[in-house]
């Protein structure tokens, strides 16, 4: 199966701290790939690198055979029309209604008449179950509704790739179930390629076709959900089981307890 994205020997650092050290990933076309890992590992940074908002120190990110870091600005903007991103906060434009938010990319990048845009927007809202909320402002939406509206905007131009940045974060069980269903349904119905960045293990194991687990600046585990569940890596198992202590220690590095509480040096 063809790879839509190939990340080859990527090294990226920020403020002197190495985020990724010579990692390689492949995102298969038409599949849902999950990128998981502990908080603060740089999962969102990976999406920004794929989208060309950040430039790697070394290595390459190839999208449909073209190098993202090597692209000129105009070409990068053209390529971005083939991808979209669902941000953690939704990132709806607060001065526009839900309808105008979803119509925005259509008005910016197409010459469709308003009547057609209206139909397209309503179809996208219907797909996410928010057709009745078209005239609401983002401030009037619940967190789950805002995320669904942002999802409708993300699919407005029928992109080839959708990147989801922590789509389940802060959601109640019902909203989470709705989002899981939508991600899977849209991926299948629209023949999309999805990249889901999350640390919600239970949810992502139900929808992902392939999983990468990142930790300690590298890929510590990869495979299908079954392969990941059966992984013999202690780090992978600590992450999947949610164990408080293990290869990722509970205690942040500090001086010994004798020194801290009794003033004794060893």
């Amino acid at each position: 199966m063809e790879n839509l994205i190939e990340i080859n020997n990527l090294t990226f650092s920020r403020s002197g701290r190495i985020i990724y050290d010579d990692i390689s990933l492949k995102i298969k076309k038409g599949k849902t790939t999950a990128i998981m890992g502990p908080s603060g590992i740089g999962k969102t940074t990976m999406l920004r690198l794929i989208g060309g908002q950040l430039v790697p120190d070394k290595g390459d990110i190839v999208f449909k055979g073209e190098s993202i870091p090597g692209m000129r600005r105009n070409r990068l903007f053209e390529v971005r029309r083939q991808m979209s991103m669902l941000f953690q906060s939704g990132a709806l434009f607060t001065d526009m209604s839900v309808f105008d938010n979803i119509a925005f990319p259509l008005r910016e990048h197409t010459k469709l008449p308003e009547s057609v845009i209206h139909t397209v927007v309503m179809l996208k809202l219907q797909a996410v179950g928010l057709r009745g909320a078209a005239e609401l402002m983002p401030a009037e939406l619940s967190g789950g509704m805002a995320r669904r509206a942002a999802l409708a905007r993300a699919i407005a131009l029928d992109p080839e790739l959708i990147m989801y940045d922590e789509p389940f974060g802060g959601q109640d069980p019902i909203s989470m179930g709705v989002l899981v269903k939508l991600i899977k349904a849209l991926n299948d119905a629209l023949q999309l390629t999805s990249v889901v960045v999350t640390h919600d293990v239970t949810e992502v194991l139900t929808i992902a076709d392939y999983i990468y687990i990142l930790a300690e600046q590298r890929v510590i585990g990869s495979g299908t959900p079954e392969q990941i569940k059966n992984s013999d890596s202690p780090l992978v198992q600590q992450f999947l089981q949610g164990q408080a202590d293990g290869p990722v220690p509970f205690h942040y590095p500090a001086t010994s307890t004798d020194e801290a509480f009794l003033g004794r040096t060893s």
């Binding site: 053209e78 971005r80 906060s89 990132a91 709806l92 434009f93 607060t94 925005f104 990319p105 910016e108």
Partner: peptide, 11 residues
């Protein structure tokens, strides 16, 4: 609120 980032990602 990542609105500027979302504009960039919408080209």
């Amino acid at each position: 609120t990542e609105q500027l980032s979302s504009l960039e990602m919408m080209a």
